[in-house]
Design a protein around this nucleic acid. Sequence first.
DNA 1: AGATAAAATGATAGCGCAACCATTTTGACT
DNA 2: AGTCAAAATGGTTGCGCTATCATTTTATCT
Lengths: 333, 333
Amino acid sequence: MNKKPNLKDVAKVAGVSAITVSRVLSNPDKVSEKLRAKVEQAVHEIGYIRNHAASALASRRSGVIAVIIPSLSNIVFNDVLQGIYSAVKQHHLQVVLGDCHYSPLEEEKLIATLLSQSPEGFILTGTDQTDYARKLLKQSGIPIVQLMELSDCPIDMNIGFSHFNAGVDITNHLLQKGYRKLGFLGARMDTRTQQRLAGFKKAIADFKQPCQSYVVTTTQSSSIRLGGQLLQAVMAESQGQCDAVFCCNDDLALGALFETKRMNLKVPSDIAICGFNDLEASALVEPAITSVASPRFEMGQQAVELLMTASGEDKTHKPPIDIGYRIVERAST
Amino acid sequence: MNKKPNLKDVAKVAGVSAITVSRVLSNPDKVSEKLRAKVEQAVHEIGYIRNHAASALASRRSGVIAVIIPSLSNIVFNDVLQGIYSAVKQHHLQVVLGDCHYSPLEEEKLIATLLSQSPEGFILTGTDQTDYARKLLKQSGIPIVQLMELSDCPIDMNIGFSHFNAGVDITNHLLQKGYRKLGFLGARMDTRTQQRLAGFKKAIADFKQPCQSYVVTTTQSSSIRLGGQLLQAVMAESQGQCDAVFCCNDDLALGALFETKRMNLKVPSDIAICGFNDLEASALVEPAITSVASPRFEMGQQAVELLMTASGEDKTHKPPIDIGYRIVERAST
DNA sequence: AGATAAAATGATAGCGCAACCATTTTGACT
DNA sequence: AGTCAAAATGGTTGCGCTATCATTTTATCT
């Protein structure tokens, strides 16, 4: 195998200088049509592909943005990722992606690794970064977006919605429907889940009439199967009294719903179920599950746009962007 | 903001030469403990992060592998991705990921873009690449793995399983259970779905007793909702005769199952349902859905291992690796 | 036609790092 | 102590590209 062709090889074939080839690739309109055609022909002919490392080194532009999500297996971040990829395509950027498995320490290591790619922007999930990670990020001088939640003191930019408020609202929804023995089913218990739980507790504390609450949580990762187990657990803890459950996500809610069939409980008359994230399945099961919808795809897109419009040197405080959420009432409540 | 620190800055602080710092970062055991400690201290102190572009250019090793999947939203590829990421971590590599939306042309462009990163390996899905894409890939001289299906003429390495055989097997399963009016519900109709359909047709053609088949397909992308629509369609086409459906994936199967409840059909007595991919939900709905399981996570892992053990220059023909599948029989059939 | 501006093209240098080879230091042995 | 090998460290160079500036060609005007 011959060595990979480089700029000079193309230049030789096209009969121009190397720098002209470079321009055809990055600033086609700075080159006359005649030369451009010759060069493009030569590029295609010898299958030349620009060496990104050399280009990035010389131009100080990597054409890369870094993204860290807490979990590849959670469909919620997948939606955000799709938004990111769709926006990135417009800007001719590449994404380098890391999965930190919900661990700030792993995230810190990933941040250091990904920063070595000299990304032109950084997208993070949540607000839970270590101090050293924050130091590295700030020192890098690149624009940064924190996703999903709203933060009082974002590193740079921030877009998300209030999981606390959403927790309050959906709990109030259950209370308004007349349920008084509310269960909370929580898995993983990352910060966003904790905020939802805090909202749940707040709504109950503020409610003017007597009501009961049962909180069942685990740090296991969420799954449909686990939803069934947690429903069992909350029924046990409440001695069968529990008449509504707020599941911290739709996976648990689906599992809980499937479990009600096995336990011969009627939804929503014996027990109401609501979830979070509004997955497709939630709208299509019988009965359909009440959930909290949020524009995740758009959040991902907007995060990229924020990065691209940020000057990088702009150190002014940027207010968090609240992208909102929506309670979707369905038959399960 | 001061300029980003480089090797020399670290060297100055640590009182050593630049090359020693470089060694501490890439070959720690080539450096005495004393100097190493000094250097590591200096690195941490000034928050030094190696410039990947310069490193890649000088060493001709990018530490990157390229991956292209047909869809980010399909959970199936997500599982493979997780396997890839888990393996990649061991090898201290980065992944650059592209989503080609099931389009060979988009894939060709992505391949060109990703090759510019000088990846040390390339993972592709399927065998449907354009000629120019194949030329670029071969010319690059890097090891390549094609995933998911088995190919007679892989570009380099290949790991997957036979979707045709799986289609035959699951159709025979339905026939053995006594169903004789079989429907096939297909969405997207990518090559793997087509192979499953071919298997379905083959099994029916080979069956010794009289039986009917109804094929309903669409190029729309798959979803749970679509599964319900396709079930309606196949029942219409068969004038209510259809007594079993093979859905080309579990999303459709779930949608079909949910639709049977609305249509007051009993599963599996009125109609049997089977899917493909064995998603978590399929095992937990009532009745649980028969499906085809395959080790997707492991396939992703193995793909990376194959890349890492490949010498790159080894042009010998490597036989495809059949990673197998398993029919999981459940109550829906 | 001549003067001037504008566009197109080229030559040179350097981005930050690691390969390569040269030099120094250390340790092991007689 | 003296010899030699091995380990540790450093200096120089070049990876392939683009920024910058210099030069040439073309277009536009009086």
